[in-house]
Simulated assay, not measured.
Amino acid sequence: MALWSVIVYGRTKQADYRFLAIPDDFGEEEQNWARKYIHGTTVHRERLPGNPRWSLFKNHQHCVFGVTCMLQELIGSERKYEYMAKDGGRRSLHIFVGYVAQINEDFNSLRILPVLENLEFFKYRHLFTSLEKLWHLKSYQLINRKIDEYPYNFKLPNETELRDNFNEFIPCLEGENQALIMPDNQENRHNLWENCCKFFDYPYKYIPLSLCLGLPEKRDVLEGPFLNATASDATQYLKLSKRKSKELNEPSKITEPDNRNASRTKHNSSYSISRRRLPIRMILLISIFVGLILLVIWKKYTLAIQIFMSLLVGLCVQNVSGK
């Protein structure tokens, strides 16, 4: 017989939703894996009151099954814990409570749990006292505090054999990129649960599998993590392709410069440069003119004046070519 641990995902009076209890072998990778499915059960939270959602998900290492419901429904007649049903802003809280088993040689003895849809089954011993201990802690206190860990030492009662007359079919498995959706009624819930339980035994027990009973809409299945589910708006048995989550890859917006402004800028720049070059040209021309006069007057300095004139002409040509 498999031994089970517990898993709780909820919030306190002032701290946001997080794991409040996990098995003692749950590291960050296992928490991320479980969190994905737990979040998938909390869509349309406004429809949760009076409509608990039951889920099961497993991979090659762990099997988790539990319930997502309003905390007030789980507290029930335990009146001394009613204050934990609402947060500091008086908003009603929901919670996920479940059990976790390791996939090992003992796991193949698991059968249908007839009390699956019984909230009393998920009130494990010390649940409320554990929540009470965490209730007044703030976010920064929980961040620096290790999550409560529980060993695998729970024995779940009332394991029974599969029914002989249930409608057999193959549920959707990981890698198929498909989802099985059934109308949400008691018979379909039992059929889906029992067909998925066939994959707890050898040679299927290491195959990843997931199901959720009681999701509000078909879209929640197609866009969520679960591969098998009952949905309130489904009217017939459906097997549809899963939808990939939308990723917003908006290209960065590049503003093109105004051509008129660019032309105006270029024109102004050229005009400014031309104005700066005008005095230089005037100086060169005057220098050449003076040089010619000196060449006529002082013939004995002809060589020196010719060298000077060559330099001036060279500077003039360089200035014009750099325009």
Results as ranks from 00 to 15, higher is better:
174 E>R: 10
84 M>V: 15
172 C>G: 04
140 Y>A: 11
240 L>S: 00
229 A>S: 08
93 L>E: 12
164 D>Q: 04
306 Q>H: 03
85 A>P: 07
189 R>P: 06
176 E>I: 00
263 S>A: 02
279 P>F: 05
31 Q>G: 02
88 G>V: 13
99 Y>I: 00
245 S>D: 07
228 N>E: 07
294 L>Y: 03
8 V>C: 06
185 N>K: 09
244 K>G: 07
189 R>V: 10
2 A>Q: 14
230 T>P: 05
134 L>P: 04
220 D>Y: 02
140 Y>G: 00
310 S>C: 13
190 H>G: 05
42 T>H: 12
198 K>P: 02
322 G>M: 11
236 Q>E: 15
284 L>P: 08
232 S>Q: 14
82 E>V: 08
21 A>R: 08
274 S>I: 09
15 A>K: 10
186 Q>P: 02
271 Y>T: 10
244 K>Y: 03
142 L>V: 08
159 E>L: 01
105 E>Y: 03
24 D>M: 13
135 W>H: 09
267 H>V: 04
268 N>I: 09
195 N>R: 06
82 E>M: 06
133 K>I: 05
88 G>N: 14
261 N>G: 01
70 M>H: 00
51 N>C: 08
94 H>C: 03
238 L>K: 00
308 F>H: 01
188 N>T: 04
119 L>A: 04
51 N>H: 15
39 H>Y: 15
196 C>E: 06
86 K>N: 06
42 T>K: 13
167 N>M: 08
218 K>M: 15
113 L>A: 12
113 L>G: 03
31 Q>V: 07
219 R>L: 15
60 H>A: 08
218 K>V: 15
150 Y>K: 13
14 Q>I: 15
186 Q>D: 11
107 F>Q: 01
120 E>N: 11
322 G>K: 14
88 G>P: 04
94 H>E: 04
172 C>K: 10
251 P>F: 11
5 S>Q: 12
227 L>A: 05
232 S>K: 11
174 E>V: 11
319 N>R: 10
191 N>H: 08
75 I>E: 12
268 N>Y: 12
23 P>N: 02
20 L>R: 03
68 T>K: 01
92 S>V: 11
67 V>S: 00
257 P>N: 06
110 L>M: 12
223 E>H: 04
32 N>G: 09
209 L>A: 08
293 I>V: 15
160 T>E: 03
210 S>C: 00
296 V>H: 01
160 T>D: 00
263 S>K: 09
202 Y>K: 09
